[in-house]
Design a binder for these strands. Structure first.
Length: 421
DNA sequence: TGACTTTCTACGGAAGCGGC
DNA sequence: GCCGCTTCCGTAGAAAGTCA
């Protein structure tokens, strides 16, 4: 057992203005310095009430207790890695003696507070091994089958005899609305009024970047993104199609990087860069200066494409398809999120097909995990992989993926280029 | 197309609850 | 009144929608 005491050493201290702050000790009454300092840091923030500090302290104490009981020891908190953290999340979801489980939101709250402590520690120079991305916490928790409690019973939807690894019953209409089928993606390309949006759709479909990340793509990159050069026809290095370009961008308050397929950049250079030059003229006529090199996407009128413009143009697709008599587009919606989701799903589908594992039970595959990680630009993705494997197997039975017959990047690019020619 | 409004939801903070 | 634990809730910021 670790030990947590509320002590009054800070009573009357003007910076804290509270009588009690939690202090952590190990079994031998050795001070756990970092968690204690975290508690002091929490207490020092003026808006936090004593209840908040108390709550955070208990969450951490409970976690340390578990570390002790599980044999890792609370002193070793810095050596705890993602696997052990996952084990703790599983533990949180276990039914108690009376058969009850804690609510999903409660468990999520616990997980986030522990994450808060670790990220505070890192910021303050206390190195540790827990490399978890904030976005992943929920996925990690969802992987635990015991936490079924967060399904709102008041929402009635068609439940299928299939459980996602998240523990939530598959909500059929909802899952379908999350994806753009490959055939729909291909059908959507010619429907765009402006080629720039077809290019954007293709980039998301292939690389799974978020719109905000994508809009940071440079026309001519500098520093870390120096690989991005707007090549004229015949100027590109011969191996560009086989290489990948390092693309670094700010994403959700962090710096992220992905390997951007050289082949994709090659296609952009061929199909769009000449247009970008024409549009830059319009921009220059209007403003007197050239558009910045940090901006790749300009629309027909020579304005930099914004998230809002992108969203609107994407959203138009289903209605445009309805008006065009020969359009093969069948989906109900068309958004960037759906393309991103499709990218991951089709990617996993292709990989499973190649390995002959379609329709089989999930088996963790480190190589595939690594590939998906690269694709999505995440640090760690294990539970996400599991999610997509199940999603793929779900849709295989629906014949939803049947239309994908070619390799991923090639098929998306050829669809784009065909449309362009 | 941009300014503005409405809706959604993730998150941190704090209240609630039962037992002593 | 304190404690251990769980759940609730207000809000900021993003997404989605509307209007001129």
């Amino acid at each position: 057992m670790s030990i947590m005491e509320f002590a009054n050493g800070l009573i009357g201290h003007p910076a804290y203005k509270r009588s009690r702050v939690a202090i952590f000790f190990d079994n031998d009454h050795g001070l756990l310095e970092e968690p204690t300092r975290w508690m002091m840091a929490v207490a020092k923030r003026k808006s936090r009430s004593i209840e908040t500090s108390r709550n955070y302290a208990h969450i951490l104490a409970r976690y340390f207790d578990w570390l002790d009981n599980a044999g890792y020891g609370c002193v070793a908190w810095q050596s705890i890695d993602e696997d052990i953290f996952d084990a703790y999340l599983v533990h949180l979801g276990q039914p108690r003696e009376d058969g009850s489980t804690i609510a999903y939101d409660t468990a999520l709250h616990y997980a986030y507070r522990i994450y808060d402590f670790y990220s505070w520690a890192k910021k303050n120079g206390y190195e540790h091994s827990l490399e978890v991305d904030r976005d992943e916490i929920e996925h990690r928790l969802d992987a635990n089958q015991h936490l079924l409690g967060h399904i709102k019973p008041s929402v009635s939807v068609e439940k299928l005899n299939f459980n996602l690894p998240t523990g939530r019953p598959a909500l059929h209409h909802r899952e379908l609305d999350r994806l753009v089928a490959q055939s729909d993606y291909e059908a959507a390309l010619p429907l765009f009024d402006d080629l720039v949006y077809a290019i954007i759709a293709t980039i998301i479909r292939i690389t799974a970047v978020r719109p905000k990340d994508l809009l940071q793509l440079p026309y001519r990159g500098k520093a870390v993104n120096v690989d991005f050069v707007p090549y004229d026809e015949g100027e590109a290095p011969p191996d560009l199609g086989r290489r990948s370009l390092h693309y670094e961008f700010a994403s959700k308050g962090k710096v992220r990087s992905i390997e951007f397929p050289g082949k994709l950049w090659q296609a952009i250079c061929a199909a769009y860069i000449p247009l970008r030059r024409q549009r830059a003229e319009l921009y220059r006529d209007r403003t007197g200066i050239s558009p910045p090199n940090s901006v790749l996407f300009l629309n027909e009128a020579g304005y930099a494409v914004t998230y809002q413009m992108l969203y609107r143009e994407f959203a138009k697709i289903p209605s445009l398809a309805a008006k065009a008599l020969d359009a093969k587009f069948k989906g109900r919606r068309f958004t960037a999120c759906m393309l991103r989701h499709s990218c991951a799903t089709y990617f996993v589908y292709e990989a499973l097909k190649q390995k002959g594992r379609l329709g089989q039970h999930f088996v963790y595959d480190a190589a595939l995990d690594e590939e998906l990680r690269k694709l999505m630009g995440h640090n760690d993705i294990k539970t996400t992989l599991e999610y997509y494997v199940h999603l793929v197997n779900r849709f295989v039975h629906d014949d939803l993926l049947v239309d994908l017959k070619r390799a991923q990047v090639d098929s998306c690019l050829s669809a784009l280029l065909e449309h362009h020619d």
